[in-house]
Design a protein around this nucleic acid. Sequence first.
DNA 1: CAGTCACATGACTGATTGGTCATATTATAT
DNA 2: ATATAATATGACCAATCAGTCATGTGACTG
Lengths: 216, 216
Amino acid sequence: MPLQTFDNLPEDKRQRIIDCAVDEFAQHDYASASISKIVAKAGIAKGSLYQYFNDKTDLYTYLLDLVSQTKAKMMAKAFRQENRMPFFESLLALFSVMASFELQYPKLAKIGYKATSGKSPLPEDLLIKGKQATIQYFVTLINQGKATGEIRPDIDAEIAAFIFVSALSEMGNFVSMKTGIDKNIEDSGKPTPAQLSEIERLYQQVIMILKNGIAN
Amino acid sequence: MPLQTFDNLPEDKRQRIIDCAVDEFAQHDYASASISKIVAKAGIAKGSLYQYFNDKTDLYTYLLDLVSQTKAKMMAKAFRQENRMPFFESLLALFSVMASFELQYPKLAKIGYKATSGKSPLPEDLLIKGKQATIQYFVTLINQGKATGEIRPDIDAEIAAFIFVSALSEMGNFVSMKTGIDKNIEDSGKPTPAQLSEIERLYQQVIMILKNGIAN
DNA sequence: CAGTCACATGACTGATTGGTCATATTATAT
DNA sequence: ATATAATATGACCAATCAGTCATGTGACTG
């Protein structure tokens, strides 16, 4: 975790450092991301960065925390209401949040994506445990849906969950492919209404397919 | 492409170099993969490697070729028969090939996966074009299915194709998660019959879900 | 034997890396 | 104004990187 000195920093300077670090880790994986380039772009001395963070992994885990906390905030906002929704409404809300996150914070999304798919210094177990945790969340959701009769009882919950997670995690790529949103767009740059409706149509179609299948 | 000298090499030496390079590029992305480590592990001088390949990207693209050619060979074997199968049989065959490839050549699969998801020195356009090409293949397959009445006409072919590709490309991870197959398993190590049947059940379930949906 | 050619070698280069630390600057407190 | 503590700095270090090249080796040819 960052040292106290990092919190004592003036807001704009701290934010600038974070921005530069996010830029770097969004474009390169952990091993290739360069501390030297981060401090150069942020306009601070390398020694300074090492007064804010213990080492490279410290900075990296700080960014991963930023990713999950930002996402968690959006989740909390979306699920503020009754937590017992019909299954497919829950699914819709989940997809909606993931898509919005991807649109609003494409760089943070990229960091998170790299962390789960590529290489990172964290114990590998910890990472796949994270992915398994996501799958497990869907498994319980699906089993609830089975209990309420919304989902066919012969569905293998784990495999269905795996499909959902795959579609979710890859949807970001598809979104940016379709909307042309890319790294040149700054984080927090509000997406246009046209993009939003396109995205909404996208994940509604996805859910429809997962719900009813494609067979005639 | 590799120089002629590489082809002139004695078979075992050439294979040893390929194996070590595959090892390295399967574990690290392009930027992090180390030529020094490859030659050290292969027991050759660094200068020698540069008599076989022009530079790092030359070696890398050679490996990517190896990946796609290996996969293409398996595809050709599976689709030797009549090329106009019912849609869901084609889908089954596709999934089957992808799963077998993942099982038989986990390292090659990992290299290919990194190439599409992570960073590589190739023009980025070329890579996402590759992914889009895969999607396009599914799009035509789906449109054929629509024409024959196998698939509902209101399905958005592109979105459905995206879901298939996502499931396909992530299935490797799921397979290794379920079967415990990992980097410690050598390429070409034949998977056990138990693993094979487990895998078969997996992608049959996946196709069933994509075909009929999960709704009751 | 001499000459030629293909390949093998590893010391070397210049660049870059994560990380350190003595020193300089600034802010706070007395 | 002086002392003390907090922060800023960049030259520096050892390690590593991709890539080069003069030299060496061995096999084939005349």
